[in-house]
Simulated assay, not measured.
Amino acid sequence: MTSPTPPAEQPRLTADEFRTLHERLRAMARTAGNAERGALDQLTPERVAAAATEVRLGLTVSLAAEIQTHPAPDNPEPATHRITVPALEDLTSDGLHFATDRFAMNVHGDADSHLDALCHVLFDGALYGGVPASSIGADGARALAVELAADGIVGRGVLLDIPALRGVPWLEPGDHVTAEDLAAAEAAQGVRVGPGDLLFVRVGHRRRRAELGAWDASRARAGLHPAAVAFLAERRVAVLGGDGNNDTAPSAVPGVGFPVHVLAINAMGVHLMDYLQLEELTAACARAGRWSFLCVVAPLRLPAATGSPVNPIAVL
């Protein structure tokens, strides 16, 4: 399909305004006391236990998209999946035989669901918390790797449906979700985001892709406006997930291609989940009349890695 045309007028931040916002959010993160594991420190045992009370129906819903193994405009380097089966003569013979799988993927692409570790974003020569950028190299990350979430991420999930708020099936690529949108969606859905929550923001990326076909999402996609990240800081959100990249393209900040990633990960220590599949969860929440749920995220235990494929599970 042809590339979508972004909305004509979009709010922008100057480089100075962006760095001022970056410093303000860094200061708020320090005040929140999340220096060791980033915003995951907001997931206290008490909050995890409270999240378990969100389960009412015993319904489980995956928030991951099916892994793509074929090239597409948004996935020029698809995952490779090779299955090895026994020889033909062994398939019908007696005895024990195995079929095996080999799998490889570009974790941080524009198609597959994944978790970004805190070592994923380097900005002005540093990682989150001022950790030197030299702490990461070809042999992996010596700090802030995905191992911070080795025991899983478990907490109260909250889904905010921005297309429903605006009365459209999806946001067009290039459109921004503002802090005002997030607050309005809370009010419309009767839910409030609080400390330690796993916040999921639907922009309709997956539905648009399913109905209109894939496009080059690296050039045009809907996401959060950088100023909206202050909403996450004020509410002390533990994790942010979206059905797109979380960042809008084109960027609202000249010279900074992924300002939401920089602010959330690098300034605040908030793990991001990109390119989730939120359509089934949206439908389930609408049927239940509830937009909060228990959420369990289990990244792979990849030593020194900058991220991981992930299959978050919502339990309603």
Rank of each mutant, 00 (worst) to 15 (best):
D247R: 02
G223K: 02
D197P: 01
D216E: 15
T100S: 15
H114V: 05
I67A: 14
G241Y: 01
L59F: 10
V262T: 03
F293E: 04
N34M: 06
L198V: 04
L144A: 07
D247C: 00
A27E: 13
T31G: 12
G257V: 05
E23T: 06
E89V: 14
H271F: 14
W170Q: 05
L240P: 01
S113L: 04
V253D: 00
A284H: 07
H22T: 03
E23P: 03
G125N: 07
R301Q: 14
S135V: 06
L96H: 12
G204L: 02
A27N: 12
V310I: 01
P71N: 12
A314Y: 01
S135P: 03
D116K: 04
L294C: 05
G213H: 11
S218W: 07
A249V: 02
D90E: 15
P132Q: 07
N311V: 12
M1K: 13
D124S: 09
G289P: 09
D274P: 05
A143E: 12
G204P: 06
V55E: 13
R19D: 15
T20V: 07
C285P: 07
H271Y: 11
D124F: 03
D139P: 07
P309A: 12
P86D: 11
V237I: 08
A32D: 10
G167E: 02
R206A: 07
V193M: 10
L165W: 13
R12Y: 08
D16Y: 04
V158M: 09
N311Y: 05
R209Y: 13
F103T: 14
V310A: 01
P45F: 08
G130W: 09
G269V: 00
V201K: 00
F200G: 00
H205M: 10
R142M: 10
P76D: 12
E89R: 12
N34W: 09
G289R: 04
F98A: 14
S135M: 08
L88K: 12
S218G: 12
G140D: 02
V191E: 00
E147P: 06
V296A: 11
R208G: 03
G137F: 12
R19L: 08
V310H: 01
G33Q: 09
T69S: 12
N311H: 11
F200R: 05
A99G: 15
A286R: 08
L182Y: 09
P173T: 02
T80C: 13
H225M: 11
L59P: 07
L144P: 06
R156T: 10
L263N: 00
D124Q: 14
D110S: 15
T306R: 15
R19S: 06
L115K: 05
V48I: 14
L300E: 15
A238S: 06
V315Y: 13
L63T: 02
R287N: 11
A133G: 13
A72L: 07
V256F: 02
R19P: 01
T100C: 13
P254V: 00
L300F: 11
P45Y: 08
V146W: 09
P132N: 07
A187G: 06
G174W: 04
D247Q: 03
L148Q: 11
A99L: 13
H114T: 08
D175P: 05
L165E: 06
N75S: 11
L40K: 04
L144K: 05
D110L: 12
P73E: 07
D181V: 01
T100Y: 10
A49T: 07
T31S: 13
R166N: 11
L160Q: 09
S292D: 15
L59H: 14
